[in-house]
Amino acid sequence: MTRANLVRTARFLGRRMLGLLLVMWLVATLVFVILRLIPGDPVQIISGIDVVDPAVLDELRAELGLDEPLLVQYLRWLAKLATGDLGVSIRSQTPVTELIGKALPVTLELALFAFLIGLLISVPAGAAASRRKGKLTDALITSSALVGISLPSYVLALVAIYWFAVKWQLLPSGGYVSPTVDLLENLRMMILPAVTLGLITAGTLVRMLRRNLIDQLGEDYVRSARARGAGENLVFYGHVMRNALIPYVTIAGIEAGILLSGAVITESIFAIPGLGRLMVTNIYDRDYPVVQGAVFVVAGMYVLVNFLVDLLYSWLDPRVSLS
């Protein structure tokens, strides 16, 4: 890479980072605004229904900084964010970073498994369907994918629990054990939620990849390759696949982002203490700092994944340069 190229790449990355920061600031603001709209007084809730003495409540409010004007609260929230301080849970008094630190690896593990399942199913299935377009294989794969995207995760999860946990008692119906404590049990517990999420992810990805592959197979360069004597395997794996994978990477990135952001319902159903569940339970409890922090981290990961996908994209596609 020449010096000029390096400078251009650096400038490009700089601009992207700036955009990233802007989006994160908007996210932080949105989080703040939405949570302040939630009716109900957190001070009242944490101190219990029976405490009615306004003096006690005011004291607690002052302690939590909730008595200050909204603008001050907002600026304080931004200032703390900038230093990586997400505050302290109102309820448990533990630092939010610590709570997130516990939940994050759990979500990461689940997301990773689910994403791998999605990838491992979608690539071969998408390839097979597009190569046999209009044939039985294609019909089977496309209809399975359609079922995949039409099944809500909670329905699939409950049906899976009904058969595998309740009826046949093959797998646990929920819970979580850290892999460092008991790896085998951890995996057993992960199977149902990961497969549930993975199948749904696969549904979206298969449809996307199949469509891309079919579009690419109709391109002029395919005709040229055939005209110079390339066989169908070379045409497919040597020409079409890479072109179709370029947009696939974007969609797969979005799916990965969604999985990383914590499968809220799936985690609830399977009682998995990940980020999704952390957010939901604390919305019920109106534990602002925890929800704020968790949502912010999740959104941040999503934006970051998208950023990485963009980089991957420009690496895969020679037409897109980093400038």
């Binding site: 908007l26 939630i38 969604i258 952001s261 949502v295 999740v298 959104a299 999503y302 934006v303």
Partner: peptide, 16 residues
């Protein structure tokens, strides 16, 4: 603004 909205975990946004 749309980027920011999309960056939210969808169900969490809906819940909130």
């Amino acid at each position: 603004l749309m980027d920011a909205l999309l960056a939210f975990p969808l169900l969490v946004l809906a819940i909130a």
